[in-house]
């Protein structure tokens, strides 16, 4: 495992292996090997772009759904979590502490589509006791990336 590499890729997954090598002081071969090992061990689970989808299509919506769930004996929350995560509309599923159990991030083409998905697919699951849907109105920061107000470089072009 190489924390430095992970930190760099966490920031920008598109650095080339050559760049990663120079920045970490490893050889390109070492970087390739480390990455392969971390991918195999599922420390690195994927590489994705941070897209501001609102700019692509402003009708797209996402919502955070709070689920209260009856845990199954012997399976806890995992069984229902596994069921919920099968839906392609579901972007992420977390087990939460506090007032509810599962937090589910759902994406859809419209408010209605997401609302219907919750009503038809999530609330009908046996062990789901209740749902609460919170629509995302605006995303300011996503995965460490500022989506709004990212200020330009206001330093003077030259400062000796």
């Amino acid at each position: 495992m190489n924390i430095k590499l992970l930190n760099l890729l966490d920031r920008n997954a598109r650095y080339t292996n050559e760049e990663l090598a120079v920045m970490t002081g490893l050889t390109t071969e070492e970087v390739e090997r480390e990455l392969r090992e971390m991918e195999d061990a599922r420390l690195i689970c994927g590489y994705k772009a941070v897209v501001d989808w609102e700019k692509v299509d402003n009708t797209l919506v996402s919502a955070i759904i709070e689920l209260k769930v009856t845990p199954k004996a012997g399976h806890g929350f995992e069984e229902v979590a596994k069921r919920v995560m099968q839906f392609p509309q579901v972007e992420s599923v977390y087990l939460m502490s506090g007032g509810y159990d599962l937090s589910v991030v759902v994406k859809g083409k419209s408010f209605q589509e997401v609302a219907l998905f919750v009503a038809k697919e999530l609330s009908t699951i046996d062990s789901v006791l209740s749902t609460a849907t919170h629509f995302v109105l605006r995303r300011y920061k996503e995965q460490d990336v500022e989506l709004i107000g990212a200020s330009g470089d206001d330093r003077e072009t030259f400062l000796l």
Partner: peptide
């Protein structure tokens, strides 16, 4: 005055310049 002032002035008025000129932390 700084001998390269003129050069700096050109750079400062150009659009789309990528600078590696600044001597202060980002």
């Amino acid at each position: 005055p700084s001998g390269i002032r003129k050069f700096f002035d050109i750079a400062n008025t150009m659009q789309g310049v990528i600078s590696l000129g600044v001597g202060e932390p980002d």
